[in-house]
Design a protein around this nucleic acid. Sequence first.
DNA 1: CTTATCCCCTGCCGGC
DNA 2: TGCCGGCAGGGGATAA
Length: 296
Amino acid sequence: MPELPEVEIHRRRLERLLVGRRAAAVEVRDPRLAAGAALERLQRLVPGALFAGARRHGKYLLLDLEALPPAGRWVLLVHLRMTGKLWVDEYPAHEPNHARLAMALGGGGMVWFQDTRRFGTVALVRAEEEEALPELAQLGPDALHAPPGPAELAGWCAGSRRAIKLLLMDQRLLAGIGNICACEILYRAGVAPDAPAGTLGAPELVAIAGAIPRHLEWALAAQARQRLLYLGEPGAENVFHVYGRAGQPCPRCGESIVRTVLGGRGTFSCPGCQRPGRAAAPGGCRTITGGEGGAG
DNA sequence: CTTATCCCCTGCCGGC
DNA sequence: TGCCGGCAGGGGATAA
């Protein structure tokens, strides 16, 4: 799935290719995506509507839509879940596999919502109602725009026996961190993913707070460089430090990376340098620099 | 409050 | 070559 970096790459691309253009028609190909009233609303409001903005909060994409008068301002709320992708292509577009929704643009372009596993969601909601939507209202601050400092992190961790990795992935606290990001952030910070949050000391919290923006910026740069919608998509080279590298030597200390399971999700970490007392100080010798990560 | 488990889907990969 | 289990970046429901 796309996590925050993948969704942000989508947002930037949509801002560049879609904002300012008008939709001409919409076709929903997967009845599970929209049916009944939701389908009728899409078909009634999308044709003629202007794409006025592309925003993101956590893993949600919010496409501002100005429908033809008197319909007013709407928001196309998209969650890509595991395999969703939004493509903006010029006509005649090559239709991607598993196209679940197609929008024709006024200038002759096409927007495709592609989603192999069909977990993704699309909803058209009134702009005025956006802040009242439970799925958005329950989200914590965006991990890229409002990364937590050590003090805020400490507040979340205080008294908690939850594994720090599960806490970082809790969208109600911090929006945007998924399984890969959580593994990579904790690797950068030198903190074990199963460490109970409440047991972490100041050095660990400082290291995690620093690793969050560093990882996100690194992932965004790596994606832009490779022109990928998904970092680490099937067939692409694995550019991560620990994710998907069980059995391989840790790039920092050489110990073998292990795969464990936390909250039902595959979790990758280095037992050598992710343990108490090993928190990586920002700028210190154990800090991962931005750079390559094995990208081709 | 927390955790684990299953579910929603489809495709891919490794083992036999 | 084919079959089969396990796994995959999302979250929600449900059961302890």
